[in-house]
């Protein structure tokens, strides 16, 4: 398993980098907290509303904190051209991609766990934690989709002279199906609405498979100069 070996090496390195530098995860968590506070001002989040607003607020926070974090981890590779040591190694472009997808996925999941906790506390909505088992498939598939697209696009945009600023412009339209799926499935489950969350899970799964396959093919074109 040489293939996975390089991917794991990259994941391990990113975790170390995060422990030493504390550059992306802490910023993501901070942004999540800040956005939740802002949403509290912007929307009427009283007891009777919070359940219907929860999925929308949470996925917007996931999306934007995710963009911030994935932009940062790509910048860490671009700084000092550090990624070149991966390019000049037996690690294939595919294992490079998978390694970065895994580390982005890990940071996104940690950010989401904290965001859910913040939400439960700030909005006095413990239900979101108790219903986590049912919400889990939607959360995981959605987060995987974010990481699959975000890894490719953040690496691509950080090569331009606008840097990570360009990321949301390319990333947001493409992940619309994930945002729709994430918000809708969570809303359906939280509020016991009709409409079948299963369909959304399917759509997100198809999205993930499609983007996994295509990004795997395309990633090598963006690590060449």
């Amino acid at each position: 398993m040489k293939f996975m070996g390089s991917a794991i090496a990259i994941l391990r390195k990113d975790i170390l980098l995060e422990l030493r530098g504390k550059e992306s995860l802490s910023l993501m968590l901070f942004l999540s907290l800040l956005l939740l506070v802002i949403f509290n001002f912007a929307l009427d989040t009283g007891k009777e509303n919070v359940s219907s607003l929860a999925s929308g607020i949470l996925w917007v926070v996931f999306t934007f904190s995710g963009i911030l974090g994935m932009g940062r981890t790509s910048m860490a590779e671009r700084d000092e051209d550090a990624y070149l040591s991966i390019v000049f190694s037996p690690a294939s472009a595919e294992s490079f991609y998978i390694g970065k997808v895994l580390s982005n996925l890990l940071f996104l999941v940690i950010m989401e766990i904290f965001t859910l906790l913040f939400f439960a506390v700030l909005y006095d909505f413990e239900k979101i934690i108790s219903m986590l088992p049912q919400l889990l498939p939607g959360l995981l598939l959605g987060t995987l989709g974010f990481s699959l697209v975000g890894t490719l696009f953040s690496f691509l945009t950080t090569a331009s002279r606008y840097g990570e600023v360009l990321l949301p412009f390319l990333y947001l339209p493409v992940v619309v199906p994930i945002i729709l799926g994430g918000v809708s499935s969570m809303d359906i489950i939280l509020n016991a609405k009709a409409g079948g969350a299963g369909k959304w899970i399917q759509i997100m799964a198809v999205f993930d498979i499609l983007y996994f396959a295509v990004s795997l093919l395309l990633f090598r074109y963006i690590i060449e100069e």
Binding site: L152, L156, T157, S160, R161, V174, V176, P177, L218, Y221
Partner: peptide, 30 residues
């Protein structure tokens, strides 16, 4: 926007091709 941000002619072509493909396969899903 991306094309405007990359000076190297070849790199510009390569990167925007990636968007040209990714964006298009998104159509049926969207």
């Amino acid at each position: 926007l991306l094309r405007g941000g990359i000076a190297d002619r070849f790199k510009k072509a390569q990167y925007s091709a990636v968007i040209g493909i990714i964006g298009y396969i998104d159509i049926p899903v969207i």
